[in-house]
Design a protein around this nucleic acid. Structure first.
Lengths: 211, 211
DNA sequence: CCGGCGGCTTTTGTATACAATAGCGTGACC
DNA sequence: GGTCACGCTATTGTATACAAAAGCCGCCGG
């Protein structure tokens, strides 16, 4: 499944998010084709996706450059993510099957364990965290919602946020995941929605404060 | 600006929405390239967009077919649109400039006039309606939001809804637009958001009732 | 008669060649 | 010396050729 277009997408996005291609940098298909070692065709496809997700923008005459995300843009992303992922949680609450719910609980246990460790491993935390959220989104069973959220749940952005987390924040996050598990177990859509809203908005404010 | 890819996109989407390509129909790039009179390259690009918007789906092995939108899918679209467009209205309330606001008021006047006419022209109504909503989305000044809504505000779906509208429904819709203008004039984000939520959800239920 | 295997064909994915367009530099003319 | 025009070049858009993969069909064997 590892098509050239997918690899090009991952590589270009990585270039952008790592800062190797700073905001405002001009982008050409040929140049990226060289970097990625593929032809322009898959690069074009990757750039279309990146453009749809606003990683790159095209100025009047079809020329592309790396987008410059202002603080306000990131705030908007968090707001949208809070709305949509809370909605996903509400849907998931009434749809999740017991096996998935059990997996979610187990994931939360691992997360709590990771946080409780003497030297919390941020990478482990991030992986468990991501898996947890992705499971919920999948359980919401709405491809449209999943697509929209995929463009918002930007791991490197989350990573930057998490790097600022102190232990208390990590613990709080784990606790909120536990709350979500409870809400799901109770099949309480409103509860799940409320908890998720708070969960994302707190992450946003931790990000903004650290910013 | 009328690139072949754009024309292909419009034509293919039209085929799907008109029912000429019924849900479940297998799709091949070559076939569409023939129909549109272009090569596979722009067709591929168009299909990528249509896939992202869930007009077409690809079964396990990259084969495409026309998506089959169930009632539940349409309900989810309306729900998401209600959430996102209400958010757009809230943003617009605090950002819209007076000139645009005046244009919105004028649009609403025209809409009311069209509805008040002896034989309301549904096409006129739809055009004014669309322009009204697009103006608000533009005023929200969030490209991300605009992109997401573009995939949800499906004119042909709206059209099917509107065709069922009786005069009272049209009048009510116009009235709600008037409410939105008032909320914007007052720069009241919460008011605008609430009105827009109701506006979309009412449209949904009118649609659901009409079947 | 049914099931599996193999090649054929269709379809997608990628590379490359070609066309059109826009930006930019250079040079000539005022 | 400045400005406009022209041509060149760099870049995107489209077409086509080629590669790879997957389904389909028929054939063969049990």
């Amino acid at each position: 499944m590892s098509k050239a277009a997918d690899r090009a997408y991952a590589e270009i996005r990585s270039l952008i998010l790592s800062g190797d291609a700073p905001p405002g940098s001009p982008i050409t298909e040929t140049m990226l084709a060289d970097i990625c070692g593929v032809s322009r065709t898959p690069v074009r496809e990757a750039l279309k996706r990146l453009e749809a997700e606003l990683y790159v923008v095209r100025s009047e005459s079809q020329r592309l450059q790396v987008a410059d995300w202002k603080r306000e843009d990131l705030a908007e992303m968090f707001t949208l993510r809070a709305m949509l992922e809370a909605h996903a949680a509400a849907r998931a609450a009434t749809r999740i099957d017991t096996a998935t719910l059990a997996a979610l609980a187990a994931s939360n246990d691992r997360l709590a364990a990771a946080v409780a460790a003497e030297a919390p491993d941020v990478a482990t935390f991030l992986n468990e965290n991501r898996a947890f959220h992705e499971t919920i989104i999948a359980a919401a069973d709405s491809p449209r919602l999943a697509t929209m959220l995929a463009a918002l749940v930007e791991q490197p952005v989350v990573r930057r946020t998490a790097a600022r987390y102190n232990r208390a924040e990590l613990a709080r996050s784990a606790h909120e995941h536990g709350e979500l598990v409870l809400a799901f177990t109770a099949r309480d859509a409103e509860w799940a929605q409320a908890v998720m809203t708070g969960h994302i908005r707190r992450a946003f404010h931790a990000f903004a404060a650290a910013g």
